[in-house]
Design a protein around this nucleic acid. Structure first.
Ligand code: FES
Ligand code: FES
Lengths: 169, 169
DNA sequence: CCATACAGGACCAAATTGGTACGATTTGGA
DNA sequence: TCCAAATCGTACCAATTTGGTCCTGTATGG
């Protein structure tokens, strides 16, 4: 479904919760409570995020987690990357040899481009944008922060195919 | 992994094979041969693509599949949509109620934007681009057809993290 | 010295996906 | 007319991935 894992979604929520108060420590328990997620799962997420150096852990009593960067400098691409690993829409977009049909396949390069485009889309949204404001923005973004401008090349919708024209549905 | 299904990858390959000769019919067997994929799998793919009205099936002897649109007007977004269903990076980006934590979650709107951006990224590549040319493009495109320009809302990248107001619960 | 809280696994259960198989249906041609 | 070619559709199984839990260790502060 071209969907990223549910855990990633949760991770974003947890990060947002931390970002709400970047200056202080948050225990896994507290974050679980605020996110309404199972504590064990949150703990797992925190570990992943910590390993990716997005947040910093303080052990011992009164310990907890804290952001290592400002909410403005952490993007969802970072979170996705931390939880899901490298972004790769297809197996063969990164390393060759994953696919058994590379012979007749000329899509690798294109997948790579798409891959990069998606990453940029994710990198365009910061924690700060998610966390606090949500100001004005109704629900339907007529003017969203993410814009995309593909090359305005090919644009004929119904050309060639001069063969027989079957009665479409 | 933010990856789309392997089948989608295959579907693209198959579509490319058809697009190589849009004017004539291709049997599932022939396409399987050209794609070096198991015939059963290709058949399944073809059915999906046919149901999505991307290709058209002709039954009976000498039957086969044929594109319904020109290769220029079919994008990988169409293919993804046909094989994987609607593009949704998160479950709750489309319909509410999928997530149990919507209370403390302010990410829905943002996911939606990201979702849309990704779709546009996929829609920016057509079958025609994948299929034939691949001209010029070395391997690392310094000037790729897919470009992305997020809003330059970035304020400061590394603020000192002042103690913000607690939102409490 | 003990309670707290993270680190890092191992581990299992459930869901999804990849892939296959079989029968039904339609069409063209012998 | 009857058979062969080819798709349609669905049902099914197997493999992989994912979601989630638990346990043991380590560090810190009171
Ligand atoms: S190399 Fe894997 S599908 Fe093209
Ligand atoms: S509503 Fe599902 S994570 Fe936000």
């Amino acid at each position: 479904m071209l969907k990223l894992a549910k855990l990633t979604d949760y991770a974003t929520v947890v990060m947002t919760a931390i970002a709400a108060e970047p200056a202080q420590l948050h225990s896994a328990q507290e974050l679980a409570d605020r996110s309404h997620l199972p504590a064990a799962t949150v703990s797992k997420l925190l570990k992943m995020l910590a390993k990716a150096r997005l947040i910093e852990a303080t052990r011992g009593a009164q310990g907890g987690y804290r952001l290592m960067r400002s909410p403005e400098s952490i993007t969802v691409a970072d979170v996705v990357d931390a939880v899901e690993g490298p972004i790769a829409v297809t197996s063969c977009s990164i390393h060759a040899g994953d696919c058994s049909i590379e012979s007749s396949c000329g899509t690798r390069a294109n997948w790579r481009l798409i891959n990069e485009a998606i990453r940029q889309a994710l990198a365009a949204v910061t924690l700060a944008q998610i966390a606090a404001p949500m100001r004005r923005a109704g629900t339907m973004p007529a003017e969203n922060p993410i814009t995309f401008h593909p090359r305005k090349a090919k644009r004929n919708s119904d050309a060639p195919i001069p063969a027989t024209r079957p009665a479409a549905d």
